[in-house]
């Protein structure tokens, strides 16, 4: 018993005892209120803790799922590029004998190579050229000529033979301008313009005028021969081409081809075939494919 309790029981007056009772009642009430506040705080802390645990668990579960998904998808991406069958030792002497039917099924797709590979193989295994077996067919795949051969009616007259020659030349008229290894745009600009316009008569007349004022040279001969070839004058063209033959290395391949065409125009078929053979046999000749085409057409 504390001193104040003893005082209350011994000496206190009635109103003092009543006041003490009210104080004790109030203190008891405060104690209960304090206790309930403490319990409420404890309960709230418990709920907060549970909430955090749930949040943590949810995040951990999501992280786990993300990791599983990452692993799953990364594995799926990696699998197709390395087929299981390729992991087997390639040096096995007789792998097919030990393989199960399932393994054979798996291996079947490998027997079918991609389309690109098939095409490449097909190009390689084409039948050999009957005339030049060493050349591949792909060398024969050349476009049709840009321009038709000159009209032969004016120079050679009508007739089946001329029509047949025209048809043949139309397929072989790989005659282009400017000429390889020869640039006349500065020396003879007017001639150059006319040739670009395919006005071969005007160009030839200008070249004739030039010949009268200056000494004949390889350029004038070659240009004249070219103009005559384009107008269907094979024999005349051959005369000019003969003047420059073997003199200019840069011109020589094209000159050889134009000479062969001029020979056809001049009805020198056997000579033309001989020259086509020379051109076709030269693997580095720029007109070798055209020559092989000519030889096939002339068979």
């Amino acid at each position: 018993m504390e001193k104040y309790e003893q005082y209350l029981s011994d000496n206190a007056e009635d109103d003092e005892r009543l006041a003490a009772a009210q104080v004790l009642e109030g203190l008891a009430g405060l104690r209960l209120e304090s206790k309930l506040r403490e319990v409420a705080a404890e309960e709230a802390a418990q709920h907060r803790r549970t909430l955090w645990r749930r949040l943590l668990f949810t995040l951990a579960a999501l992280a786990f799922l993300a990791a599983v998904a990452y692993w799953f998808f990364s594995k799926n991406e990696a699998t197709p590029s390395v087929p299981p069958i390729e992991k087997q030792a390639p040096s096995s002497p007789s792998p097919t004998k030990k393989q199960t039917p399932e393994q054979n099924k798996l291996e079947k797709p490998r027997e079918n190579p991609p389309i690109a590979q098939i095409k490449a193989k097909e190009e390689v295994v084409v039948p050999p050229d009957p005339i030049f077996p060493t050349f591949a067919l792909q060398d024969e795949l050349i476009p049709e000529p840009l321009h038709a051969a000159p009209d032969l009616v004016a120079t050679r007259g009508q007739g089946e033979a001329n029509a047949a020659l025209k048809a043949l030349l139309d397929q072989l008229w790989y005659v282009t301008y400017p000429l390889q290894g020869l640039d006349i745009s500065e020396a003879f600009p007017s001639v150059d313009e006319n040739l670009k316009k395919r006005d071969f008569t005007a160009a030839y007349l200008e070249l004739e005028q030039l010949s009268s004022t200056q000494a004949a040279n390889d350029t004038l001969h070659y240009l004249k021969g070219y103009c005559l070839l384009q107008t269907g004058e094979g024999q005349e063209a051959l005369l000019h081409f003969a003047q420059v033959q073997g003199r200019q290395l840069d011109w020589e391949p094209q000159l050889q081809w134009y000479r062969s065409l001029a020979m056809l125009l001049a009805d020198k078929r056997s000579e033309a075939i001989a020259l086509f053979n020379v051109i076709a046999a030269n693997a580095g000749h720029p007109y070798r494919r055209q020559a092989r085409k000519a030889l096939k057409l002339l068979q």
Binding site: Q22, V23, E25, G26, L27, A28, G29, L30, E33
Partner: peptide
Amino acid sequence: QRESAELVR
């Protein structure tokens, strides 16, 4: 009791 508690406070 609540009133008493308030007074004691």
